[in-house]
């Protein structure tokens, strides 16, 4: 009972909400990326690895920029460099996955898991090397300046935060205290919902994931769609990894920094039934559950139980949708299968 009351009071605190949102957004990025590749019929279990690669790419770019490539610090350039490396690394991961599963028709689960092993190792290796270079006993890479640049808020946040009205303060804190990538993510989710449902690309993409044979016969270039969706999805997921280290932990890299964020993102895709709109509030829910324990000041073991809830809820969604058998709620029909036109 006490826990419930404490949980309720926690949920309404601004610090909880802001933490839930930053955690949620990093999940949302990952989930949107995974969703894009899954819509094309590619079950990419390499997303956790790709998020690591994106994260360490951001850190690498920022570190190089802060320490080696410039004498004066320009926040704009820092963001640009970090973003460039983030995209470079994460899309490299996406390219490996795409080439193996699409061109070479390798098993998607196996390739994905190998990519996660590779990506995590790559990130920890590069991060560890940077940490050694930076002399922090090899424990952490700190790029606070770039982290701060990423957290630049919208211009009207400052006045709101400094206003005397408690209401304005709270609204500002809850809605506008985040870096630009937060809003980009929400916009991306809405944009993707539009693309999936209303545009030719989205239509063709869904057809590729549902029934590549039919899409092919209708003149859709199946492999091109798979490649583009997987690469773009990897880029988005990679940004999610970078968002996590820049926005949520303010520009610090440690070994295994992302924890199980990538797997939660995969879970979120299922929870959201492959719909970007549902993923937005799903990400808030998952983010909230992840940070609830921390904010509630409960014993550690309780936190672990709370952290289990997103997975349990995902399983429940999976079970309920398979019971209801509504066709629109099912995974893309050819998810996990590679396509070869001349298969007989």
């Amino acid at each position: 009972m006490d826990y419930i009351i404490s949980a309720i009071t926690t949920i309404f605190s601004t610090s909880f909400v802001t933490m839930a949102i930053t955690k949620g957004i990093s999940l949302l990025y990952g989930a949107l990326g995974e969703m894009m590749t899954e819509k094309a019929g590619n079950m990419n279990l390499g997303i956790p690895g790709i998020m690591y690669m994106g994260a360490v790419g951001g850190i690498f770019g920022a570190y190089m920029y802060e320490n080696n490539w410039s004498s004066s610090f320009s926040p704009f350039l820092a963001i640009l460099v970090a973003l460039a490396f983030c995209l470079l690394f994460s899309m490299l991961g996406g390219l490996i996955y795409s080439f193996l599963t699409i061109t070479l028709k390798a098993n998607q689960n196996v390739t994905g898991l190998a990519l996660t092993t590779f990506g995590t190792g790559f990130a920890n290796f590069l991060g560890g090397s940077l940490a050694k270079l930076s002399g922090n006993d090899g424990l952490a890479v700190v790029v606070r300046k770039t982290g701060k640049a990423f957290k630049t808020t919208l211009p009207f946040y400052e006045p709101m935060a400094n206003s005397n009205s408690g209401f304005l303060k709270t609204v500002g804190e809850v809605l506008f205290s985040y870096g630009f990538l937060t809003y980009v993510c929400i916009a991306l989710a809405i944009g993707l919902a539009f693309v999936f449902n209303r545009t030719r690309w989205g239509l063709n993409l869904r057809a590729v994931g549902e029934n590549p044979g039919a899409a092919d016969a209708a003149g859709v270039n199946v492999n091109a769609y798979k490649y583009i969706a997987t690469m773009a999805g990897s880029a988005v997921a990679g940004i999610g990894g970078m968002y996590f280290v820049m926005e949520r932990i303010s520009g610090v890299w440690q070994n295994n920094a992302l924890g199980d964020t990538g797997w939660l993102a995969v879970a979120l895709v299922i929870f959201a039934l492959w719909r970007p709109g549902r993923a937005i509030w799903g990400s808030l829910l998952f983010g909230g559950l992840c940070v609830l324990g921390t904010c509630m000041n409960v014993p550690d073991q309780t936190k672990e139980i709370v952290r289990m809830l997103p997975y349990i809820m995902t399983v429940l969604v999976l079970v309920v949708t398979s019971l209801r058998k509504r066709r629109e709620d099912q995974p893309p029909q050819s998810l996990g299968l590679s396509y070869f036109r001349e298969e007989r």
Partner: peptide, 20 residues
């Protein structure tokens, strides 16, 4: 060669070029 979860109209225009 039809995609089950799409509508008739969506299947008909599948893969065609045109406005995005």
């Amino acid at each position: 060669k039809l995609v089950d979860v799409l509508t008739a109209a969506q299947n008909i225009v599948l893969g065609l070029k045109g406005k995005a």
